[in-house]
């Protein structure tokens, strides 16, 4: 039986999510797993934007911030259910991406970089400064999602860590499924054409501006949902979630893992989430190692970790 890349990706993810807990020595590993999945959702959006449509964003954490604060503020101010707040955050992010994206997506390369950077900084400044609304840099509590209690009522009693592990894992698989469907759709093909050459894409009749804008909006929704899940899981959020370093982290995870494929980017999210946890013994050297890894992977494994590893394996098999 030959698997399509889409079903292969989903199968790998499902097996990983389901079977990894068998090897967990303690509850802490559920937490790390859940973080990997949350980051995985954000980088799936980066794959669509950067890997397929070829656009750069240095400000996507801004959307994560909107998703996160929607979950903190909407339930408190309009007594919206946290689950609906996730949807609200995603809608606001998409709308904002549409508004911001129309003017700035005309820009190329580094100019697009600085424009998106500016957008991210603006969001993080609002979250920091509008104290009356967001409670400022000290952060704000986020209400309980309530799903765990519901499951308990149905006889499925999970610990907090376990619940968030499986819930985020399911969300990631759903997100990957949607992204892979997009890949094979006409929109996905047009996006990839655009990455190859904008001029060529235009000559075959692709509406460049619309395609870029769609990719930008979709990736914004992924970032927003990832921010929401982080907020709900942590039950507390600070403006750091929208910070510049978080934007860079998203792009780095995706590109390091392999920005061309969903599985590659998620692999990158896993690697970069685990790295600092593994380095705690050498905390002093953590920054040095992180910087070194970023440089070495980009120089020697240009397509990213996963594609390079897979190619090595294949090369050996032949």
């Amino acid at each position: 039986m030959k698997l399509t890349p889409k079903s292969a990706t989903l199968l790998v993810l499902a097996v990983l999510v389901a079977l990894s807990p068998l090897f967990f020595p303690s509850g802490y590993y559920y937490r790390v797993g859940a973080l990997i999945f949350v980051n995985g959702i954000a980088v799936t959006g980066i794959v669509i934007l950067t890997g397929w449509a070829g656009q750069i964003s240095l400000g996507h954490a801004g959307f994560a911030g909107i998703g996160a604060y929607a979950c903190a503020l909407a339930p408190a101010h309009w007594s919206l259910h946290p689950a609906l707040a996730v949807v609200l955050g995603a809608a606001i992010s998409a709308l904002l991406a549409w508004l911001v994206g129309r003017p700035i997506l005309r820009l190329r390369g580094y100019y697009l970089g600085v424009a998106t950077l500016g957008f991210g900084i603006l969001v993080s400044m609002v979250l920091n400064n509008e104290r009356d609304l967001t409670r400022g840099p000290d952060g704000i509590e986020v209400p309980e999602l309530g799903l765990r209690a519901l499951l308990k009522g149905w006889g499925l009693d999970l610990s907090n860590g376990q619940f968030w592990y499986f819930f985020c894992g399911l969300c990631l698989i759903a997100g990957a499924w949607l992204a892979l469907n997009l890949y094979n759709s006409p929109t996905g093909r047009a996006l990839r054409a655009l990455h190859g050459s904008e001029v060529a894409a235009r000559t075959v009749g692709v509406d460049l501006a619309r395609m870029k804008l769609q990719a930008f909006m979709i990736s914004a929704v992924y970032a927003s949902v990832s921010g929401s899940l982080l907020a709900l899981q942590n039950k507390f959020i600070t403006p750091d979630v929208a910070g510049f370093m978080h934007s860079i982290e998203m792009v780095t995870m995706a590109v390091l893992g392999g920005v061309g494929s969903v599985l590659g980017a998620i692999f990158g999210a896993g690697a970069l989430t685990l790295l600092p946890q593994a380095l705690t013994v050498f905390a002093e050297y953590e920054q040095m190692v992180l910087g070194l890894v970023m440089m070495l992977v980009m120089i020697f494994l240009r397509e990213g970790l996963l594609p390079s590893i897979l190619r090595k394996l294949r090369g050996r098999g032949e």
Binding site: I56, T252, L292, M294, M298, I299
Partner: peptide, 11 residues
Amino acid sequence: VVSLIIITIGA
């Protein structure tokens, strides 16, 4: 470009 950004940020 995006790889170069990551390399210099890594540096």
